[in-house]
Design a protein around this nucleic acid. Structure first.
Lengths: 204, 204
DNA sequence: CCACTTGTTGTACGACTGTCCAACAAGGTT
DNA sequence: AACCTTGTTGGACAGTCGTACAACAAGTGG
């Protein structure tokens, strides 16, 4: 009678990814306060010591989780834009309203995101990740706005505006779901976009 | 030779306030992770045990700090509006741009605010405080928009929009100061406001 | 079947956490 | 001057934190 293996070995990359995903789940559930090495290890079904084997410290794991989560959000936005077809206006609306449907409109994702925000000031590497993430948002928005015929000097301020508006709506939608609905948030974003794209034919 | 007193007694309200202000400073400096009973006590120049004497637990102290900080922000906004005079448009602009000047445009205040956000999901009392705070923002904005002649059915969505826009701009301005300037943020908020108030005379 | 690499475990360590409470003393009253 | 209320201290307590590391074992090449 041979005993079952006490553990399975994994490909380093696969184990790394499973630790990152476990970290994301813990951040979503309990925020930064609950993201301890032991909690994350239990979530990943792994011994606490293994975290130190793949990451220099818990901060590095959290930074890696930011990168991974940011990439997932980027992918969701890109998919929404791609599904909208070729019309520049439709693509813009898709980008600007995607944050109010799954998988982005999720209080747990916001909890993860807030944890990252809370680290921006203290950890330079997280700050760099943040700058890159939001710079990417604005750059993508500038490209979509340009395709929709927005004048060159307007590109930058309008991209900043829409990024901030969507971020603010997403934040409040997830924090106070009863204050307004996801549909309301999407309608507000669309209305703001309409006012930006066609200033002389503004509509509610 | 008489020794100096080892400590001074304070009025309960004064000591309570000094603990709240120390808590706010710690949250600003180190975020929620650094807000321990001992750290706050040292910041207030007081023994650790005293915190438990004034608050049932550290959570209650943080909640009280949210209330106090929120009231300070409200006061700053109110002062900005009052200083703008009687013109409805000027009052709206003052409200909408006040977040990009001192004392609101402050990375340390944002750090405190992020700490509160991180507690909204877990602590119902913090969630209630948050709903009240942001409900107040929107109600004040609705009143200012109504005074500026915005149509009744537009009041709610435009108040939600402007609150979200200002919040998003403030967030990003404090997290990535090099991405855009406070003046730029104010100009963006003013332009959005202009598009809302006079949809047919939109300006950059 | 043995040897070797290395992913994995479990624990020990010092520092920190929140809560609690007996003892102390400051400041006012009698 | 003796007394009393109560703000305040400082440490005990059990628990958790991040890190480090020796020992173990899974899987592979021989």
């Amino acid at each position: 009678m041979s005993t079952a293996p006490a553990f399975r070995r994994s490909e380093p990359d696969a184990r790394r990814l499973s630790l990152i995903e476990a970290c994301a789940r813990v951040l979503a559930r309990a925020g930064i306060a609950g993201a301890s090495v032991r909690t994350i290890a239990v979530e990943a079904g792994v011994s606490p010591g293994l975290v130190g084997h793949y990451f220099p410290g818990v901060d590095a794991l959290i930074a890696a989780t930011y990168g991974h989560t940011g990439a997932r959000v980027d992918a969701a936005l890109e998919a929404a834009v791609a599904a909208a077809g070729d019309d520049p206006r439709a693509r813009l609306e898709a980008f600007v309203t995607a944050s109010f449907t799954a998988p982005i409109a999720d209080p747990e994702l916001l909890a993860t995101w807030i944890a990252f925000w809370s680290l921006v000031r203290a950890r330079p590497e997280i700050a760099a990740l943040h700058d890159e993430q939001y710079g990417g948002f604005r750059a993508q928005l500038e490209a979509l706005l340009a395709a929709a015929g927005v004048a060159r000097p307007e590109l930058r301020p309008r991209a900043i505006e829409l990024t901030a508006l969507v971020d603010g709506l997403w934040l409040e939608l997830c924090l106070s779901p009863q204050a307004f609905s996801a549909d309301e948030a999407a309608a507000i974003a669309r209305a703001a976009l309409a006012r930006i794209i066609s200033p002389d034919r503004a509509t509610g």
